[in-house]
Nucleic acid binder design. Structure first.
Lengths: 210, 210
DNA sequence: AATTCCATCGACTACGCAGTCAATTTATCT
DNA sequence: AGATAAATTGACTGCGTAGTCGATGGAATT
């Protein structure tokens, strides 16, 4: 095996082999993707793929790692404005990244569902690592957003953050799944979705009962 | 193929072949389960399994259908009491069913994640059919629970139901996943979980802001 | 120019597994 | 009891696919 050989390849060839892997692993389960299919689509020989990565599993993990890398944002978050401005600006950024890296998002999505035993350990390590960093970032944003509110009971701040976390994730996941097939419509409908979300979040902020 | 032969088997043998299937499909992905493993564990020959079900896929779908059947409740819901009494009594029943039919729950869980192309169509049909009936029942309960509340703005009732739906499902799924390995602890901790949930739901009912 | 080195190729191997089928046992009928 | 049908067995087949390996060719080294 010689990952170094792969890394020294011209950028466009590396990108081809990576992006076709991500695409394949985003559409089919690990076991349904064949290395023959990959090599045909990349127009490379089977031997060289195994020379680069050593095994199907390691090629898969390489693709997953790179997909994750692209999805975790490096840009700073805008922390200005009121509760909704902070929350929605962070959501907009999340959505923009998911739109830019559709295949990557779907591969990560597929990976978190795929129960194939062969890849279980290596996959868990990668997922865990990035989940932590995403969780931390998300917590940060919610803390800032919540800080703009005037709480009835300050001791409930942490519970509110956890609640918002569960809530916003659930809604976002619902829509990302729903628009998986027609991502163009997601942007179109995004204003309506935000309105809907605002309605729900208002319930949490100001209650629904007399 | 002769499903009839299978159906005419003595109950304990049918149950064995069904329960071992459900167990296997709850622990491993479809592709990771081998018919050789199944037949060895059931102490039956490979030939007879295929005689009963015709193919691995049909055996899988049979197990999935039966697992689903056991999970959808047939008992009437208790619709008495205040908001939390209705909500928690329905949750308690859901939890009790999941505890009684752990393997079934995990198989359905696995099924909804498994992306194996071979089983995609038949699986989708079963999942869709039961999801509808579960959704309807869940809606019914939430409607009853919400009916006990005094709304600030009655036009928000439907939005509140949808919100509660998203919310309670997300929390329930979180805990079911968390306690997948140690289901005994789930019952132990269930009071604490309910307290936590009540805290979150109170936010929605009465708001967190001044 | 000769030699070494290494990327690349693709036919080939090994293996796991879904599904088959001729042989055997068990149940049913006359 | 003998004959017929049906249930059951497990060795075997065929296929898909991960991974191998000797052959090839091109670049760097002497």
């Amino acid at each position: 095996m010689s990952l170094e050989t792969f890394e020294n390849l011209p950028a466009h060839k590396k990108e081809l082999i990576l992006s076709i892997g991500i695409k394949e692993f985003s559409l089919k389960s690990y076991k349904d993707v064949s290395t023959d299919g990959i090599t045909k689509k990349c127009q490379i020989s089977k031997g060289i793929l195994f020379h680069y990565f050593g095994s199907k599993k390691q090629y898969y993990l390489y693709c997953l790692e790179k997909a994750m890398e692209r999805l975790v944002s490096k840009t700073e978050n805008v922390m200005k404005g009121d509760f909704y401005e902070i929350l929605f600006s962070s959501m907009n950024r999340k959505i923009a990244i998911c739109m830019q890296y559709k295949d990557e998002m779907h591969m990560v999505n597929m990976a978190s569902r795929d129960a194939a035993v062969e890849i279980a350990d290596g996959k868990a390590e990668i997922m865990q690592r990035y989940r932590n960093s995403i969780q931390l970032e998300s917590d940060e944003i919610l803390k800032m957003a919540v800080a703009t509110l005037e709480f009835k009971d300050e001791s409930k701040i942490q519970a509110a953050i956890t609640g918002l976390h569960i809530y916003t994730n659930a809604v976002l996941n619902k829509y990302l799944l729903q628009y998986q097939q027609t991502p163009e419509q997601f942007l179109e409908h995004s204003e309506k979705i935000k309105e809907e979300m605002k309605e729900y979040l208002d319930m949490m902020l100001y209650g629904i009962c007399k």
